[in-house]
Simulated assay, not measured.
Amino acid sequence: MELVVVTGLSGAGRRSVLSSLEDAGCTALDNVPARLLEPLLELESKLNPTRVRLAVGMDNRHPEFAEEFAPLLQRLSAGGVPVQVVFVEADDAVLLRRFSESRRPHYLAQDGDVAAAIQEERALLAPVKHAASAVINTSHLTLSQLRRTISELLPDLPVQGTTLRLVSFGFKHGLPADADMVLDARFLPNPFYVQELRSLTGKDLPVREYLLKSDLFGTFVAMAENWIRWTWPYIESEGRAYLTVAIGCTGGQHRSVALVESLAQNLREAMPRLVVQHRELS
């Protein structure tokens, strides 16, 4: 089992790195004391012998960390445990701003002098940084850039990608709270007013055949599909987990359902991580 140790300066983004590793499929544990790491690995190897990689967050809040870290790495290496150490840091001005914005105290700033605490922590962690496999400066990285940096350091990480959620709904029941984009289909011909179609849904072929008689329906599908395909590379580059496109009609039974089904049919081959939800039908 490969071990990835994520450590670094307070406020530099260690938790964000751990979260990115967890999103990529790693088991991630934070705030692990140096003295507990070896017993943890022994227990983990027994409980989960097939686990490929474990990521642990370690920091200097444990007084013995900086002093015990180098001997710990030596013991792990001697025991045949492959270890990568990712050290996360940021510029002083950035760290000062982050502590000011978060209103969280620096654990070394007993007198409130955060700038002095940052310098003290840098000195304490200098040997840890020297032993690191990789150093990431997060001063000017967005979350998506941070994830790309991690994927470059660990190229065999599984890429989860962005999930496209297509949701149909009825406006009379309210907007979906998690929608990133809402499209209104209420101007399309309404099968509700056709007696033999009223009890059916947009999943049923007679409803879809009725709607396809209108050029508006095909134009709606084409324009929505073009927009999703055009924006998709940019959405994925942001590292987003989900993009939710909600399409609504009056009741969420006919038009919106048929539109979502048509879009899903057109997009599924190009976007295998696609989820369809018909809110009012469920």
Results as ranks from 00 to 15, higher is better:
F171W: 15
F171M: 14
K172Y: 15
K172P: 07
K172T: 13
H173E: 13
H173M: 10
G174S: 08
G174M: 11
L175T: 10
L175K: 10
L175E: 08
P176V: 11
P176A: 12
P176D: 05
A177F: 09
A177R: 11
A179M: 03
A179P: 06
A179C: 02
D180N: 11
M181T: 12
M181Y: 11
V182F: 04
V182W: 05
L183R: 12
L183S: 07
L183C: 10
D184L: 03
A185Q: 08
A185E: 15
A185F: 08
R186T: 09
R186Q: 08
F187G: 04
F187P: 08
L188Q: 00
L188P: 05
L188V: 00
L188G: 00
N190Y: 00
N190F: 01
N190W: 00
N190I: 03
P191N: 09
F192I: 07
F192E: 07
F192T: 05
Y193N: 06
V194S: 02
V194T: 04
V194K: 01
Q195V: 04
Q195H: 10
Q195G: 07
E196G: 05
E196A: 11
E196K: 05
L197D: 01
L197A: 03
R198G: 11
R198Q: 13
R198T: 02
S199E: 09
S199M: 09
S199D: 09
L200C: 03
L200P: 07
T201V: 14
T201Q: 00
T201P: 14
T201I: 13
G202F: 09
G202C: 12
G202V: 04
K203D: 01
K203G: 08
K203P: 04
D204P: 14
D204R: 02
D204H: 08
D204M: 04
D204T: 04
L205G: 03
P206W: 02
P206Y: 01
P206T: 02
V207Q: 01
V207W: 06
R208P: 12
R208E: 06
R208Q: 13
R208S: 06
E209C: 02
E209R: 13
Y210K: 00
Y210F: 13
L211Y: 00
L211N: 02
L211A: 05
L211R: 00
L211E: 01
L212I: 04
L212M: 09
L212S: 14
K213R: 13
S214W: 00
D215Q: 03
D215Y: 00
L216R: 10
L216V: 01
F217E: 00
F217I: 12
G218A: 10
G218R: 04
G218F: 05
G218V: 07
T219K: 15
T219S: 10
T219C: 13
F220G: 06
F220Q: 10
F220C: 08
F220S: 01
V221D: 10
V221Q: 06
A222H: 15
A222Y: 14
A222S: 15
M223C: 14
M223I: 13
M223H: 15
A224F: 12
A224N: 05
A224V: 12
A224G: 10
